[in-house]
Design a protein around this nucleic acid. Sequence first.
DNA 1: CATCAATATTGACAGACGTCGATGCGTCGT
DNA 2: ACGACGCATCGACGTCTGTCAATATTGATG
Lengths: 119, 119
Amino acid sequence: MSKSLTVLTPAETVACCSPLSREPLSRPQAEQVAPLLKALADPVRLRLMSLVASHEGGEACVCDLNDAFDLSQPTISHHLKVLHQAGLLDRSKRGVWVYYRARTEALTDLGALIGNPSA
Amino acid sequence: MSKSLTVLTPAETVACCSPLSREPLSRPQAEQVAPLLKALADPVRLRLMSLVASHEGGEACVCDLNDAFDLSQPTISHHLKVLHQAGLLDRSKRGVWVYYRARTEALTDLGALIGNPSA
DNA sequence: CATCAATATTGACAGACGTCGATGCGTCGT
DNA sequence: ACGACGCATCGACGTCTGTCAATATTGATG
C-alpha cells in the first residue's frame, strides 16, 4: 500500500478547523472531519480507543485488547484497522506482538473542534 | 410519541463519563456515547450542527438550512431529526417555521469526553 | 373553507457497515 | 526445518444508513 510522504491521515487535518460553534464548517472541512467521528462512533471502537489511551504509556498490546471483548479476533483487528487508518491509533510491531498507541493530539484537536466554546 | 419525564436523551447522559484517556470506558458507557458520535459522524449533519451552533442566538430556521445544501428537503429534515433525537438540537415551532437550537452543553460535554487530557 | 407554504413522514433502493469463519503470513521455540 | 502462536486479510452474510419522490400534516391567508 502506498504511504506517500505528503499524505495526511484524517486526524492530521483536523487542527485547522475552528470549533463547530465558532463559524460554519465548510463542506470540505466537514468531509474531512466526519470520517474521524465515524471511526469513533462505534461502541467497540470507543472502548478500544479508551483502553489504549488510558493504558500505561498510552500503549496497549492487541493480545490484551482481544480479551476485553466477546468478539472474534478478526473483528477486533478490523476495528483497530479503522482507528489506525483514521489516524487515531499508531501501530508498532515488536516481535510477535503488535502494540497500538493513542494519538492524543488527534483526540485533543477533535475534542476542541466539537466542544470548545472559546478558542 | 412519548416523552416521559425520566427519559434522558443520549446527550444528557454523557456528562457522567470521564475522558477517554482517563480510564477505560465501560461497555454501557460506550453504548451511550456512541449514538451521539454517530449522530455527528456525517458531513451533512456536521455542517448542520455547525450552521445552527454558529448562527446568531445559537438558533436557525429550517428554511435557511435547506438552502445551504444541494439535498432534498426531506433529507435535511431527516438529518435534523437524527440530531434532535440524539439530544444535540432543540426544536421549537413558531408559526409555520421550525427553529433548531444547538445544545452547547451537550457539545461541550462530548468534546471534553473525547479530547480533554486533564479533567 | 379552500388554498398555499413550511416541515415531517413514508416507502423504496443502493451502498456502507459490523460480524464471523476460514485462511494467510511472520515470528519464535524446539 | 517444523509446528505453534499472534495478528491480518478475505469472502460472505444480514443489518443499518443516506438519499429521493410521493404524500401527509400543520399553520397562515384570502
